[in-house]
Design a protein around this nucleic acid. Structure first.
Lengths: 160, 160
DNA sequence: CCTTGACATGTTATATCATAACATATCTAA
DNA sequence: TTAGATATGTTATGATATAACATGTCAAGG
C-alpha cells in the first residue's frame, strides 16, 4: 500500500522536513517574502510530525529554540505560514499542521485519527468538486473551505 | 428560486421555530430523553436565527430568560442538542446553529456567508460520498466529519 | 408515601485558545 | 544614512471551554 498518505505510512521522514523547508524558501523567494528564523523554525516544528500542534505547543518549542515565548510569537509565525500555504489550521483540533503540497492551490481535506492523533492531508479534488456543486445549487460562492474527517487511521483501525 | 436554503431565502420563519421544537419533542420522546426548560429555550434561541451563535451569546439569552448565567449552563444544553442531532457546531465560527433536518442521520455541510453571517445547512450526500471515497483510498474510517465553506451567499454576492 | 438513585441544574474556579496595542529592532531602497 | 516597511518582543486582556462539586428534581421500587 504505497499510496497511503505519509501520515499513515512508515517513511523516511527526513525527506518531508527537508523538502518542506526547501519548497518554502523557493516559493517565498518568488514572492519576495522572507522565511525568517522564527518562521523557519515554526515550519520545521510543524514538519517534524504528521500531526497537528496547538499554538502553545509550537510556542513552547520556539521558546526552547531561543525565541520569544509570548503567544503572539507563535500565532504570527503560524498565521504567516497559513497565509502562504505552508501550513493549515485544523479547526476540529484548534491546531496547526504543515501543508503536504505547498505551492499547489488546493482546498485541504484532513483525516484525523482519534486514537493516534495522526493528521493526513488527502487529495481533495472530488470532494471539493462536490462541495462546489452543492454551493452552486444554493447560489453560494465558495471562497475558502475546510473539510475534516475524524475517525480511525489504517494503523489504529485494527487496534480499536 | 424556491430551492434555495431557507437561510438565504425569505420565508415564514415561525415554521422553522415551531417545527424544530415539535420535532425535537417527538424524537426525544422516542428516546426516553427530556427536552427540559433550558434545553428547550436553548433550541428556541438557535432556531430563532439562520446563523450561528456563540455559546456566550446563547448564555446571555438564557440568562435573560431566567436561567443560570454561568458558561456550563449554555455548554451543557448545547452539548445535549448536538449529541441528539438538533444542533451543530460550526467550527470555523466556534458557534452553534440549529439543525435543519433533525432525525435524519446526516453529515452536515455548512455554507457560511462572510458578509451577513447567514449559515445554511445544505444537502451533502454527494460531498459525503466523495469524502468517504477519499478516506477509503487512504484506509481511513470516517466516524464524524465537518465540512464548511466560507464565502458569499446569493444575497450578498451582488453587494460585494 | 417516601426514599433512593439517576439525571439535571447551579456555581466556583480555572484551563485553553487567541488577539489588541505598543515598543523595539532590522532590513531595504531612496 | 535615513525614512519607511517589515518583523519581533512584550504586556495585557479577551474569548472560548471544561473540571469539580453542591443542590435540586423526578420517577420507580420498596
Amino acid at each position: 500500500m504505497d499510496h497511503l498518505p505519509k501520515a499513515f505510512d512508515a517513511h523516511d521522514h527526513s525527506h518531508c522536513a527537508g523538502n518542506g523547508i526547501a519548497q518554502a524558501e523557493e516559493i517565498l523567494a518568488k514572492r519576495n517574502l522572507r522565511l525568517t528564523p522564527v518562521r523557519r523554525q515554526t515550519l520545521e516544528i510543524l514538519l517534524a510530525e504528521h500531526r497537528a500542534l496547538g499554538a502553545y505547543d509550537v510556542l513552547q518549542r520556539l521558546a526552547k529554540a531561543g525565541f520569544g515565548n509570548q503567544p503572539p510569537v507563535a500565532y504570527r509565525a503560524l498565521e504567516f505560514l497559513v497565509e502562504q500555504g505552508f501550513a493549515h489550521k485544523v479547526r476540529r483540533l484548534n491546531a496547526f499542521t504543515a501543508c503536504m503540497h505547498p505551492g499547489q492551490d488546493h482546498a485541504p481535506v484532513f483525516l484525523i485519527c482519534r486514537l493516534c492523533d495522526a493528521v493526513a492531508e488527502t487529495p481533495a479534488a472530488q470532494v471539493r468538486a462536490a462541495l462546489d456543486a452543492a454551493a452552486l445549487a444554493a447560489g453560494f460562492t465558495v471562497e475558502r473551505s475546510s473539510i475534516e474527517a475524524l475517525g480511525l487511521c489504517p494503523n489504529c483501525t485494527g487496534a480499536a
